[in-house]
């Protein structure tokens, strides 16, 4: 048995004049939660559609669970589960009926499908709503039911395309917990997301995707430290204090802060989160610099892109402009 759940080499897919994928390479070790991180239009969904046999690549090859996606699509389909960007659950059926239907379509037989539906409802926290029609479910419940449907056969590789898009924080937490549980049960999970903090919470490894290819691949820890770790955001009461405060920040963080005069804001990456924050606040107080607001936050996707594409200028700035304005607050 190979130790890789997914191997993709040089995948290419064109739509008209645009390359959705342009030499996409990926290696996902078995038993991991793997995050594909990138802005809208980076090619994440196209990659997932090729890996789940829904699309045929123009070039390149991909092996999922040991089977070629082009020449052995049925074997791949047998080994995977897919939960797309929108839940495909049937609103008119109840949660239990949905899962029984998917169970029968997975050829469990009526009795086993019923039993499996019961187990999944229990495990995904839907037991109480089992008899209710899905149209009365909340967004989070639908997602969880959709995940359960993808999990009927405990797939070896589970593909989740933006599993939390459009969910409120509470529902998002529920889905995160569910995904963790699935990984603990032994599935490899490949998920796409636009949010660094989501990939950070869930994934063992992250591939950063931009313009149809993987531009960086590492653990969340190392990716974040490449950006300089977490950031301190500071808003001053008086713009006149900006220069002095910037000196304090530079001294405490060991990095040059970015200043914005109009909003009286200073931003600096910090490695020692609490230590640096405490030192900054103390020194500012000693110097009589008034602070209006302070936050300690994770780097945004924009900052990750800036740092990667900044170090690797051949990839241009497309990805950066594409992600600005996407509120990715942690």
């Amino acid at each position: 048995m190979t130790s890789f759940a997914v191997v993709a080499e040089g995948l290419r897919k064109r739509y008209g004049d645009a390359d959705a994928l342009d030499g996409f390479d990926l290696t996902v070790p078995e038993g991991t939660v793997y995050g594909l991180l990138g802005p809208n239009g980076a090619g994440k969904t196209t990659a997932v559609r090729i890996l789940t046999t829904l699309l045929r690549p123009d070039e390149g090859r991909a092996v999922v669970a040991g089977f070629d996606v082009v020449t052995q699509p049925d074997r791949v389909r047998h080994a995977i589960g897919l939960a797309g960007q929108q839940p495909t659950v049937d609103e008119i059926l109840t949660g239990r009926e949905n899962l029984e239907m998917w169970g029968r379509l997975r050829h469990l037989g009526a009795a086993a499908a019923r039993r499996r539906a019961g187990e999944l409802l229990e495990r995904f926290g839907l037991a109480e709503a089992a008899g209710k029609r899905v149209r009365h479910y909340s967004g989070g419940m639908r997602r969880r039911l959709d995940l359960a449907a993808a999990f009927v056969l405990a797939p070896r590789v589970l593909f989740l395309d933006e599993p939390t898009t459009g969910l409120d924080p509470r529902n998002r937490n529920e889905v995160w917990q569910t995904v963790r549980g699935l990984a603990e049960a032994g599935s490899t999970v490949l998920m796409t997301t636009q949010y660094l903090f989501e990939a950070d919470r869930l994934a063992h490894r992250i591939a950063v995707v931009d313009a149809g290819r993987v531009i960086a691949e590492d653990t969340p820890e190392r990716l974040k430290s490449a950006v300089g770790g977490d950031h301190v955001d500071l808003v001053l009461r008086h713009a006149a204090d900006l220069a002095e405060a910037a000196r304090v920040l530079a001294g405490a963080a060991g990095a040059e802060p970015v200043a914005d005069h109009d909003t009286r804001r200073l931003t600096v990456p910090v490695r020692d989160r609490i230590g640096a924050l405490t030192r900054i606040m103390r020194e500012l107080q000693e110097r009589g610099v008034e602070v209006e607001d302070v936050t300690l936050r994770r780097p945004t996707l924009d900052e990750v892109f800036l740092s990667i594409t900044g170090a690797n200028s051949t990839n241009g700035t497309n990805g950066v402009t594409a992600v600005t304005g996407e509120g990715t607050a942690a």
Binding site: T53, L54, L82, T88, A149
Partner: peptide, 9 residues
């Protein structure tokens, strides 16, 4: 996406 789910099975 129902068609796609069928096609991925």
């Amino acid at each position: 996406g129902v068609t796609d789910r069928f096609r991925s099975m």
